[in-house]
């Protein structure tokens, strides 16, 4: 038999794109708060800000059911192994948002002689979107999630939201 290279039988690319669109619009974050930022994450999911509008409001208590980890708070040295394990337990494809300065770089708790924290979530797990603030306002988290959706679909979905005022 001779092998021929040419047009593929099934166009996976298109399916992948459709799947990504679906993934981006139904992100399931894990109910996982470390410190102060977790309260703002709860506020983002509650009555006024309502993350459900962006398809990301179904908070899952189990890492096995979620595809988005929002690292909301300071990662202490004692907690770091648990964070890594939780990330490993999440099924792929999965994404990580580092919410707040502590998760980005240690924030106010980083100084040369500190002993307690891991200065940045990206030192232990891969991070897709960084949301600065101490803590970020819920609007900030929503912006971060929209950026993540844009990253997943590789489309300028965000622009459309900005046009709608």
């Amino acid at each position: 038999m001779e092998t021929k290279t040419g047009e593929p039988l099934i166009k996976i690319g298109l399916l992948e794109e459709a799947l990504n669109l679906a993934r981006a619009n139904s992100l399931w974050p894990m109910t996982f708060g470390l410190a102060c930022c977790a309260i703002e994450m709860m506020a983002a999911g509650a009555a006024r800000f309502d993350l459900d509008r962006f398809g990301a409001g179904v908070f899952r208590p189990s890492p096995r059911q979620s595809d988005l980890m929002i690292v909301a708070g300071t990662i202490s040295k004692k907690m770091a192994p648990a964070v890594v394990r939780l990330w490993e337990q999440m099924p792929a494809p999965k994404w990580v948002i580092a919410m707040g300065n502590c998760a980005i770089s240690g924030g106010p708790f980083y100084y040369p002689t500190q002993y307690a924290i891991v200065p940045g979530a990206d030192l232990i797990i891969p991070v897709d979107v960084y949301v600065p603030g101490c803590p970020p306002r819920p609007e900030g988290l929503i912006e971060g999630i929209l950026h993540l959706e844009e990253k997943i679909t590789k489309r300028g979905r965000l622009r459309k939201f900005r046009d709608v005022k």
Binding site: K78, M79, F109
Partner: peptide, 8 residues
Amino acid sequence: YGHRGHEH
């Protein structure tokens, strides 16, 4: 698990 070393 949330120790941040405030006192230090």
